[in-house]
């Protein structure tokens, strides 16, 4: 954790010192904000992905399981959260549930009080709904014969999934999943509408004080850096997952 804070301070100092000559009036006041927002966007993305991914696997397994109740529940979850705009979901959770207050939400209130955690919850739910569909697609594409062979050799359902089906399903689903992570990064900009100061939130705050369109151009550059880095990382994982001979 210390390392992370040091990295933030280092980035803030070094990058901003380097940028100041480019536009002294703009960067003197706004550079630190940009860097802050940049890191908040990364945090949101990383945490939502790390929680959303296993959640999505669980949902996909439920969807493909023989239990019709589990399958229907998983289907409805995906249907609702894929069928409504992320912006509406954010506003339902932040302004809608938030209006119920501490008395209405009880123990859940600490989670809903904080805009950052509401943003994180909604992003996680949203990405898990989309990812579940993608992983389900991977699971049904694993040849049936392998399943039968696994069952015939005495493996339990869980062992079959863990050892045979999921490793192949994830390999099949990875390119589509990478795309979803990229969409999540872009979608995360919407948390700025519920007062979270991510990269987009900082950008809009700086714009509100300066009315300078340059701000948006710098924000685009930062998002290009983020999505570029993300694409390289996801491709690297894809290569690592690839089996020899494929």
């Amino acid at each position: 954790m210390d390392f992370y804070f040091d990295a933030k301070i280092w980035a803030s100092d070094t990058v901003c010192a380097a940028l100041r000559p480019v536009s002294p009036t703009l960067f003197a006041t706004s550079c630190g904000r940009f860097i802050d927002g940049f890191f908040v966007s990364i945090e949101l993305l990383v945490i939502a992905t790390l929680i959303g991914f296993p959640l999505a696997i669980g949902l996909a397994l439920a969807r493909t399981s023989r239990s019709s109740i589990l399958s229907a529940l998983s289907y409805s979850y995906s249907y609702v959260f894929r069928g409504t705009p992320l912006l509406v979901q954010l506003w339902i959770f932040y302004y809608g549930f938030g209006a119920l207050g501490a008395s209405g939400l009880g123990l859940l209130w600490p989670l809903f009080r904080d805009a950052y955690s509401v943003g994180l919850i909604v992003l996680t739910i949203n990405t898990s709904a989309y990812s579940a569909e993608i992983i389900r697609g991977g699971i049904v594409n694993v040849p049936n014969g392998q399943l039968e062979a696994a069952v015939a050799s005495g493996m339990s359902w869980w062992t079959t999934m863990r050892r045979i089906v999921l490793p192949q399903a994830l390999r099949i689903a990875w390119p589509a999943y990478s795309n979803e992570v990229l969409l999540l990064l872009k979608g995360s900009a919407l948390v700025s509408t519920i007062t979270v100061l991510d990269l987009m939130g900082q950008t809009r705050t700086i714009f509100a004080r300066s009315y300078s369109l340059d701000i948006f151009v710098y924000a685009v550059i930062l998002y290009l850096i983020l999505s570029g880095g993300l694409t390289v990382l996801l491709r690297w994982i894809e290569m690592r997952m690839r089996l020899p001979g494929y």
């Binding site: 872009k186 900009a189 987009m200 948006f216 998002y223 290009l224």
Partner: peptide, 9 residues
């Protein structure tokens, strides 16, 4: 450019 930039932005 479009694929990398948030729709909102």
């Amino acid at each position: 450019f479009i694929r990398a930039t948030p729709e909102f932005l």
